[in-house]
Simulated assay, not measured.
Amino acid sequence: MSSSVRISIRHFLWFAYSLPCFALFSCVGLSLLKDFEKSTRTHCKVFNFLPSISASIGDCEPQRYIWRLCFALDSIPRYVVAYLQLIRLLNRHHILLQELYPLVQITNSCIHFLELTFLLILTYISSNEIKWIHESSFVGFMICSLLHMLITVLIDYFWPRTINYRLSDQERMVRAKRLRWFVINITSFFISIYFYFRHNEFCEPNIYSMYCLFEYFVVLTNIAYHSVIMDEWDHQGGQIQIFY
């Protein structure tokens, strides 16, 4: 016999998007408190006041285990949310180009699934263990993340709808939030890249910390972008039934 438990969608989404925030703040905070010198050390040995995420979760304990445990707990909910969102989007009836629309949405969801998979790989394989896999996974994560956000925003704003369909105030708010978080995310990413290469080129004090700061912004704005789904689903209510 199997049993089941019902969880409200809102609580399910809160869990999915608050857990990675907890992982980030706790790991960085612990690194600053107990592993400051180790986590902020760079190859050119200049002073820095913030650790990178990779240094916090790869070189220090218990940060490594906190990060991995949080993403182990978070991975299945994030895949479930991505799948449920795809089903919801495929059931839209006010969309034109119905032959092409499912293909675009499925492709975009596959990119999102790849984003989540790359995130898991770089979580469990640190730069100290197999550096090229960690770095390749980070590149794959960023490419898929930005591409998924871009495609979603383009669909929100430019995909044709039936003439008699008008966007609700909530739909306008949701797509505006997505656009805002996408712009902040991609801006933070390019600023972080600037500081990363400047640090490697000139080895100035605190420049690597600026890279780390904008790296945090990239992670947090990525979470904020995906958590917009809470506003999108809020009016629907409902529950998720989990069997065990």
Score class of each variant (00 low, 15 high):
L19F: 10
I184S: 00
P62T: 03
F158D: 07
I130C: 07
M173A: 12
S26W: 03
H94V: 13
W159E: 04
F202I: 10
D74T: 14
I133T: 08
R6V: 10
N128P: 07
P20E: 03
I130A: 05
T117Q: 01
T117K: 02
N91F: 08
M210K: 10
E215S: 01
Y65D: 09
I223Y: 02
H226C: 06
G58W: 01
S2Q: 14
G237E: 00
Y101H: 14
L213T: 06
C203M: 01
Y208T: 05
H94L: 07
V46Y: 06
F113E: 05
Y65P: 07
S127D: 12
F25N: 01
Q63K: 03
Y83K: 11
L84C: 04
A16G: 03
Q63H: 04
L86I: 04
Q170M: 12
E99G: 08
S188F: 05
L154G: 08
L122A: 05
I111G: 00
F195Y: 03
I223Q: 03
D231N: 11
Y244V: 15
L154C: 15
C60W: 07
Y216T: 12
Y124H: 13
V183I: 15
Y17Q: 02
F25M: 08
T162G: 11
H43V: 15
W14L: 15
R10C: 12
D59H: 12
S4A: 14
T123R: 02
V81K: 01
L73A: 01
D169N: 14
P62A: 01
L90Y: 02
F197C: 01
S18F: 09
L167C: 10
H112R: 12
M173F: 11
M149Q: 13
N200P: 06
R166H: 14
S168H: 06
N91W: 07
L119M: 15
H94E: 15
I155N: 02
L154I: 15
L97T: 10
S137V: 08
I9E: 09
T40A: 02
T162L: 13
D234H: 14
